[in-house]
Design a protein around this nucleic acid. Sequence first.
DNA 1: CCTTCTCTAGGTACAGCGTACGTAGAAGCG
DNA 2: CGCTTCTACGTACGCTGTACCTAGAGAAGG
Lengths: 245, 245
Amino acid sequence: MPSSKPPSSSQRPAAPEAPELIWLRPERTGRGPKPAHSRTSIAAAAVEIADAEGLDAASMRRVAAALGAGTMSLYNYVPKKEHLLDLMLDAAVAEYDYAALAPTGDCRADLARLGHQQLGLCRRHPWLPALVISRPGIGPNALRYTDHFLAVTAPTGLDGGARMEAMALFNGFICQYAQYEQSAAAGAKWQAELVGYLTRAAMSGEYPNLAQAFATSGPPGDPDTAFDRALDRVITAILTPPTPR
Amino acid sequence: MPSSKPPSSSQRPAAPEAPELIWLRPERTGRGPKPAHSRTSIAAAAVEIADAEGLDAASMRRVAAALGAGTMSLYNYVPKKEHLLDLMLDAAVAEYDYAALAPTGDCRADLARLGHQQLGLCRRHPWLPALVISRPGIGPNALRYTDHFLAVTAPTGLDGGARMEAMALFNGFICQYAQYEQSAAAGAKWQAELVGYLTRAAMSGEYPNLAQAFATSGPPGDPDTAFDRALDRVITAILTPPTPR
DNA sequence: CCTTCTCTAGGTACAGCGTACGTAGAAGCG
DNA sequence: CGCTTCTACGTACGCTGTACCTAGAGAAGG
């Protein structure tokens, strides 16, 4: 006899009108067989695959196979693939070392330290920027990070909303920088092709400021110095009081 | 008889070792039948679909159908799907109105004007931030934009490399803001669910700074004011000379 | 302790994706 | 005119996410 339950966002154990947000769903209700896996173990398996082969490789089928489970079994734990991405994001941001990040009152130094840890995170999990940019980062670990950022920026005197905006700018810059690093590491042939194309474009006469920019660029320097310079600029943006209007 | 050509990135008219960058490939070599479409018309069709239904809807099959062509015909114009994305990105950034953006010497005002045009672009093409973040923006129109940005920031005295970094920060911030606006527009049910979840998290005691941030947030205000405030902060970051080291 | 209900496991199948391979014909070159 | 290059596009493959369904584990209640 066909089910008379109204449709929900998934057919798995979900009451009618189950919340979309996975963080609002209980991991388990207590009845039925004991599950063989957990959100944590599923996220860990997915993170491992994504670390090794890229985010696209972490398909539902691949993650299930890594766990020795059926593909459709995962849908007992996450309503849809996008929720797996949310679990992965939160699993990665669990790695912050808050002991090493205790606020000192020196905002600039505290934010620089935080930025370096975030870049480290992105380097260990190259797929993380794509999720920070596209998924709402509001799992328990992500909120822990948010809370920490708000603590570190308390001395700025900015109100809560402005500090949230500053956090978005900060995270966005670091993720973007990490993705830039990754594309720089893509391959010698591609880099040579790219440089060749841009050089030719600069010499074409159609982009005079581009040509001049190439001419005035300083030596590239090591990656962390470039990151420090740019991060410092972002931190300045955060710390500078708004111009009067 | 099987082809004896060595493999290339696509089986379509591509010499052995054809460049990966579409901008390095001629649109046509002059021989063979006259093509029924062009990169411009294909990009326009894809942009129209993406504007109406989102980036994922602009599949090779859908774009081909919109043009009345076979799916595999598109591969005469682009080696792979990712090159179609590059054409779409460049088609969108062709919309800048450089007459209205002529540099005045007032960097702050010039950048604010540019930022507003870019936000407008992202509002008309909601899929654009995802491509700006994930694709190299180096087509002819994108280089035109880059050149303009370099012109506008010439008075800062920054060298070329620093101004390119500043542009990445500027573009990244605006794209991220546009995506934030889009998620804010996602739906009343989702917003209510999200606010409910964050309120509960703030009240849980586990995130004291989050609770305080909610308490001290000013009234939301209209979207353009929020954007202006945040954009101004980014522009400050660009215009501030680096701190001595 | 038995019955009922809820939940977990996971197979099957569907619809769609990107694209390799192949054939046929248009058109330029010598 | 013959040869080569290029365009059109169908077929088919491997992969994706997930709806639907059945079977059995196990908790709740009587």
